[in-house]
Amino acid sequence: MNIFRFAGDMSHVVSILVLLLRLRSSKSAVGISLKTQELFLIVFVTRYLDLFTTFYSLYNSFMKVAYIASTTYIIWMIRFQEPYKSKYDASQDSFLHIKFAVAPCAGLALFACLVKGELSPIDILWTFSIFLEALAIVPQLFVLQRYREVENLTGHYVFFLGAYRGLYILNWVYRSYYEQFYRHNWLVYVSGAVQTALYVDFFYYYVVSKYYGGKLTLPT
């Protein structure tokens, strides 16, 4: 564990708390992509199967369970609980059908694992989750773009998620310098870089709006 990874994890936790606060305070899920949440749940469930096979630390297991539980709760709120359910507008969240994200990632993961000779289902699903995580934020960014004017807490939510990914890149740099037995995984680096790059545009407008103290509005 290093400071960048810990700060990244905390940023991830803060983003989830901000999202919960955002849902509760506005009593609606307008501007929030249910698809992104569902993709994240698929990512967590497929990646954290090692909860049953490998114990790393209490911290590690706790966080995994917390991510799965909180994301499940958010999805349940938007799908089944009032007033979120009736206010949720699926037509605003139409970008990227889940199967068009899942299928290519599954194919790519299968291919990558075949090449590497990792044939256990847990390895293949782990690799799949690495690819899928890079795409998971896309529907949310698309929803932001549709409404253009981004509500404050929603903006913070995406900011903290992006910060988490940025800090993970610093964590990899740190680990490759200071951990003697650290093994590079280029698939993780590339999808991590792609994922972070997706946030860059949003970050720019977020920082500018904070600097000038105005509302966060995205260009068309």
Binding site: R5, T54, Y56, N60, Y67, D123, W126, N171, R183, N185
Partner: peptide, 10 residues
């Protein structure tokens, strides 16, 4: 073991 790379991350 090759498969353990980075798998301690969240």
């Amino acid at each position: 073991k090759v498969t353990e790379e980075m798998k301690d991350e969240l």
